[in-house]
Each structure stands twice: as structure tokens, then as C-alpha cells.
């Protein structure tokens, strides 16, 4: 289990609901959401974003069956079970897509800096 002790955390993206950090020492991401921290390896974090984006919000909203307004994500790479309401899903998506954008932007900046236009 990962802790924050040996981490060198850099904030990637923040919303009112949570924060995504990057640990430059362990090459991992830390997601703080609903007051709980979860650590992800790079590939797992990207996979988690995909999983959250795949949640069918419309189906959750339109179904009348009990429990349909809750989405449960239990990725094997974390010990956390994400129990998400529709609002949680939207808030988590906002946080993750913002983080992903910042990571891609960071990559682009690195690329530009390593290939400066003369």
C-alpha cells in the first residue's frame, strides 16, 4: 500500500471536489477524492480514467431500478472501491479530464523544449 511519506507530490489539477497529484519520486499518481487518497501507477491511472468515462450516465438517470443511480468501480489496482452517485461521476470526470489535459500539456511542453524552433 502506498503512503504519502516517500512521495514528492506535485499538484497536477485541482477542483473543489478533489486533487490529482503526481509523485516524481515514485512515478505514480495520487487521486484525492471525497476525502480519500488512492495511488495509481501511470498505466493504471489512464485505465481508471477510461473506466470512469465509460460509465453510462444516461442509463443511470433513465433507469428506475433500485441501485441504478449508483456506479461501483473496483479497479484491481487499488484497494479502494469507488461508489459513485451521478453527481460524483460528473465531478470525478471533471477532475480526471482536467488532470489528463494537464499531463498531455506537460508532455507537449517537454517536446517543444527538447526540439526548439531555431
Amino acid at each position: 500500500m502506498q503512503g504519502k511519506k516517500n512521495c514528492q507530490l506535485v499538484e497536477v489539477f485541482k477542483t473543489e471536489q478533489g486533487i490529482v497529484y503526481q509523485c516524481n519520486r515514485q512515478n505514480m499518481f495520487c487521486l484525492e477524492f471525497s476525502g480519500v487518497s488512492s495511488f495509481f501507477k501511470i498505466t493504471d491511472f489512464l485505465d481508471f480514467i477510461k473506466k470512469v468515462n465509460k460509465i453510462d450516465i444516461e442509463a443511470m438517470a433513465s433507469s428506475t431500478s433500485p441501485g441504478s443511480d449508483i456506479a461501483i468501480l473496483m479497479p484491481h489496482y487499488t484497494e479502494r472501491c469507488f461508489v459513485l452517485t451521478m453527481t460524483d461521476v460528473l465531478k470525478l470526470r471533471e477532475l480526471l479530464s482536467g488532470a489528463k489535459f494537464m499531463l498531455q500539456l506537460n508532455s507537449m511542453i517537454f517536446q517543444c523544449l527538447s526540439n526548439p524552433v531555431s
Binding site: N27, I42, L46, N106, S107, F110
Partner: peptide, 14 residues
């Protein structure tokens, strides 16, 4: 900030 995406792979998501 380290470029972790590039550390993982040189392939873009697309």
C-alpha cells in the same frame, strides 16, 4: 514536473 506520460510510452493514446 516530470513527463510521466512519456516515461510510460512513446505511443500517443490515439
Amino acid at each position: 514536473m516530470k513527463d510521466l506520460l512519456r516515461l510510460r510510452t512513446s505511443l500517443t493514446e490515439e
